[in-house]
Design a protein around this nucleic acid. Structure first.
Lengths: 102, 102
DNA sequence: CTGTCACATCATCACTCGCTGATACCAGCC
DNA sequence: GGCTGGTATCAGCGAGTGATGATGTGACAG
């Protein structure tokens, strides 16, 4: 048991725009054009963020003619959920587990 | 149904040092001195991060003489876990929920 | 083959944000 | 009261990073 959250994934999701993208992709599988409309960001900007999400293993690409569809990898979110649940369980028992003053 | 993760909390946890602090605090309730030893960071630096964590509502302070103990608020982690679980469930059904090419 | 559209990559700018040192504050001990 | 140790606050610096414009690539339509 590691009981620690993957810092890379959290770091990637720390950006508000990327978190918005992930939230959108949780509902629908979208391509870049859709994301540009939804977020209001420039295509270049989005492409950069999608690259970060891709390299972090959070999304998958699926070419469809000239379009590129992005879809979430649910197991990443599931993993995060479990890791946070584990931490929360630990924290609930750690309240009295207080280290002595030095 | 909100089905979106609180951006502020994620943003705060996006910093590697802060995530390490949270992981440490999940096991024990510690004061600044302990955290300095565990992380190797300077006191000033830690104090800054603790302020951020405090303002984000992730930790609580408990004065004990000259020392200040920090403890996690488990409900924050629980909330995160649930939000990610919700997103994961959505994402699992969204694979075929593909918006048409424009 | 040529033009257009969707998307990715690259280089650059600008700005945020984390780290640091100096300093102030507060509680306990002499 | 004066001193010491633990902690918080402040100002400044510098590296990391998000946003932008120009450009490259690949696919479809004509």
């Amino acid at each position: 048991m590691l009981t620690s959250v993957d810092p890379d994934v959290i770091r990637v999701l720390g950006d508000p725009l990327r978190l918005q993208i992930v939230t959108l992709l949780a509902r629908e599988t979208l391509c870049t054009t859709h994301l540009v409309e939804e977020t209001g960001a420039r295509q270049t900007n989005l492409s950069n963020h999608m690259k970060v999400l891709r390299e972090a293993g959070i999304v998958e690409t699926e070419p469809c003619g000239r379009f590129t569809y992005y879809k979430l990898k649910p197991e990443v979110l599931t993993g995060l959920s479990e890791q946070f649940a584990e931490l929360a369980a630990l924290a609930r028992t750690a309240a009295e587990n207080k280290r002595a003053c030095p």
